[in-house]
């Protein structure tokens, strides 16, 4: 390394060009290094975030600048049964799907934490649903949920003879709601499982040895060692999972587009339908903004609710 840096040192000493000196001036260099990232984030994230809040208080449509209308959009939403339906389904979808993802994902992580042949191959396979574009796997689910040629109906009706008629997965509101939740859980398990597996591998085996010397059962070891030790990472993964499940768009848009009879609209798909497809930018923005309180609440709840144990024990700096 010294061989390559020596000549440049000589050059720098002989004629320190003003550009070289400028770039070695620390404050300038810091500004230059941060400029691209901060610039991109400001123009395409912070500014639109503020603009979105502003739009929510105007009656902007596509092609027409709106004027400030105060809380009119929100008052309208308050009386809109579709918005209430979307709020209900968003909360329901998030709650059920998150519970399913974490129950199954934690189980899968515990299974993968055992020692068995082909472990790394299996870990790679498990992550596949998360790697593949969601819309494309959603299309596969749409086909699996087909009213006439569903493979699940075929199994239940023609192979196992449990039912006599096909299941109408996407035709009735509750069936459609649960079908979407199943697809979401399927897609979310890998992320949860692999993240939690990483957490499991950091738990020191000596804790388990000590517990076993004290005669703890497998359930007690899980309840009093694994679970508390996993709390911090659970809190982080759950915060992420809740945020991205609540604001989910792709699955619903690809499989049902909010139907049947608007029963599966999430707030994000409703915002898209009103704002982009319907052209009512102001109203769409109001729906999008109405997600923010839910997100803040869910984040605070999952983060502080679960991470409480951590700061109670005074392990803030790790």
């Amino acid at each position: 390394m010294s061989v390559t840096t020596l000549p440049s040192r000589g050059v720098a000493l002989r004629q320190p060009g003003w550009i070289a000196r400028l770039f070695d001036y620390k404050p300038f260099l810091i500004v230059m290094c941060l400029a691209p990232a901060i610039g991109l984030l400001t123009v395409f994230l912070t500014y639109p975030l503020g603009l979105g809040v502003w739009l929510a208080f105007t009656d902007t449509t596509i092609g027409r600048r709106g004027i400030f209308v105060g809380l009119e959009n929100f008052q309208y939403l308050w009386t809109d049964p579709l918005w209430w339906g979307a709020v209900f389904y968003s909360v329901f979808y998030t709650a059920v799907a998150t519970f399913g993802k974490f129950a199954l994902g934690f189980w899968l992580a515990l299974l993968l934490n055992n020692h068995f042949p082909l472990k790394s191959l299996l870990r790679a396979i498990v992550l596949l649903p998360w790697i593949v574009p969601t819309v494309l796997s959603a299309l596969a689910f749409w086909w699996i949920y087909d009213p006439q040629f569903s493979i699940i109906s075929y199994l239940l009706v023609d192979v196992l003879h449990i039912r006599s008629t096909n299941i109408d997965f996407l035709g009735t509101p509750w069936n459609a709601r649960f079908s979407l939740i199943v697809a979401n859980i399927w897609r979310g398990i890998p992320f949860v499982a692999i993240s939690l597996l990483a957490g499991l591998q950091t738990i020191s085996p000596s804790l388990y040895e000590a517990a076993m010397l004290d005669g703890a059962s497998a359930w007690q070891r899980f309840r009093y060692i694994t679970f508390p030790m996993m709390m911090p990472i659970l809190a982080i993964v759950m915060t992420f999972s809740i945020i991205f499940t609540f604001t989910d768009f792709q699955l619903v848009y690809a499989i049902t587009r909010g139907g049947p009879v608007n029963s599966t609209h999430l707030l994000a798909t409703l915002a898209f339908q009103r704002g982009i497809a319907g052209g009512e930018l102001g109203e769409g923005a109001a729906i999008a903004v109405s997600m923010i309180p839910f997100l803040v609440f869910a984040t605070l709840f999952s983060y502080f609710g679960l991470a409480r144990r951590k700061w109670q024990q005074g392990e803030a700096n790790d």
Partner: peptide, 24 residues
Amino acid sequence: YVGLGIYLAYLVPPSILFIPLATV
């Protein structure tokens, strides 16, 4: 704090941003 700010940007979901971003 700059690091934290950039990290927080990750928590802003695209579903909230796409309507104003479209106008931008």
